[in-house]
Amino acid sequence: MDAGTLTDIVGPSGSGKTTLLLALARLLGDVSGELTLDGADASGLDPRVWRTRVAYLPQRASLVSGTVGDNLTLPWLLKVRAGQSPPAMADLRQALDGVGLDDIALDRDVSRLSVGQAARIALLRTILTGPDVLLLDEPDASLDDASAAQVARMTTDFVDRGGAVVRVRHARTDAGADRRYRLDDGRLTELTERD
């Protein structure tokens, strides 16, 4: 996967799409194979540091109990980012406005968010940590059209800023993807324009 590219992977349920993303994020125990980032072998990096650079976003948006602000600053409470400062509140406000969540206050309790709002906040939280690679697991599977469009825009903005995205989907590929693959029975096949 090159920097600044969006890769779509499609395949039927149970074909191993999520497993592939988990393996790329080193979130799967007992796997073999080679994994490199910028030419550096994954085994040379602490798994937690790897996950800050190759960030996996689960299909079900998991926000912790608390406010939107608590969730957006959560990654900076983790030891792996010790010494780094979280974004300022003004920057978080601007980031929320930029993804169509201008009506969501930072002190809103996450239990009062819709599914689409929670999905956008979970994606924003991951993007704000500044990973090199974003692994998206069915990011728009259960979203309404407006939320899905916002998620797609956040994804392409991330790519435009030089990030690499691997996105898995049940069936639909996106015309905006730079490369498209089909995963079936553990075999990855590149799709051409005609597919």
Binding site: A25, V49, R51, P58, A61, S62, R81
Partner: peptide, 9 residues
């Protein structure tokens, strides 16, 4: 899983 993916111990 979400926390681990963010780099949590």
């Amino acid at each position: 899983l979400a926390l681990t993916a963010l780099g949590a111990t």
